[in-house]
Design a protein around this nucleic acid. Structure first.
Length: 208
DNA sequence: GCCAACGTTGGC
DNA sequence: GCCAACGTTGGC
């Protein structure tokens, strides 16, 4: 079982969410409005995002939160759960199905961007499972505080673009990365990526 | 494993 | 609603 700051496997997600789904049809009316509002706040244009996960084992509340890009490749799909920061949550609510994201690996030997994923399900309430490593007793199923999205594997970058490299580029005048959220808001696990940042980093990774 | 940066909590 | 104390992130 692979929980992650950020996630657990899609297989687990399906198993756990089936009974919950039944409940949802009978109870949740208040969030319908919220969901409409969220959908409205999402852009109709394709957007880009950055998702952080930790590729090395780390135990949180008795659960290993390791999740690497290879894990995503193996599982093909995953729920990006466990985000417990309002700004990151709000970022996730803006995501549309089909949006692309960078997969960034943190807390490891060479932190950096390793691959590309795709949003395949827009924001829906995060797990209320008490055994979830980031279980929040203050989030009420009637009025969920935390949300997650589903993502699927797309492909690796041709090479890793390290945090160190990104930082060096940022320090150059007029760099397209000057305002990149990853660097300016470094503690957020999910951040938006501007189109010019996306293009620049892709080109960097793919050239020669 | 240290610790800077910064988000969150809670007392007042 | 301020802000000190506390907790977390994540690079190093």
């Amino acid at each position: 079982m692979s929980y992650k700051r950020g996630l657990r496997s899609a297989a687990n997600a399906v198993a756990e969410s089936e009974p919950k789904r039944l409940k949802k049809t009978t109870t949740v009316t208040t969030t319908d409005k919220d969901q409409q509002a969220d959908a409205k706040s999402r852009s109709t244009e394709k957007s880009y995002w950055l998702f952080k996960a930790e590729p090395e084992s780390r135990i949180v509340n008795g659960v290993d939160v390791k999740f690497s890009f290879d894990d995503l490749k193996t599982e093909h799909q995953a729920t990006w759960d466990g985000v417990r920061n309002f700004e990151a949550r709000n970022t996730m609510k803006k995501m549309n199905v089909g949006d692309l994201g960078f997969f960034y690996q943190s807390n490891c030997k060479i932190p950096g961007i390793v691959g590309i994923l795709k949003v395949c399900k827009s924001a829906y309430p995060d797990s209320f499972d008490k055994k979830h490593p980031y279980y929040d007793p203050k989030s009420d199923p009637e009025n969920p505080k935390w949300f997650m999205v589903d993502v699927e594997y797309v492909r690796p970058l041709k090479r890793l673009v390290s945090l160190q490299e990104l930082k060096e580029l940022v320090s150059k005048p007029h760099s397209p990365l000057n305002e990149m959220a990853l660097l300016r808001r470094s503690r957020l696990s999910v951040t938006p990526v501007r189109e010019k940042e996306w293009d620049f980093i892709l080109q960097l990774a793919e050239e020669e």
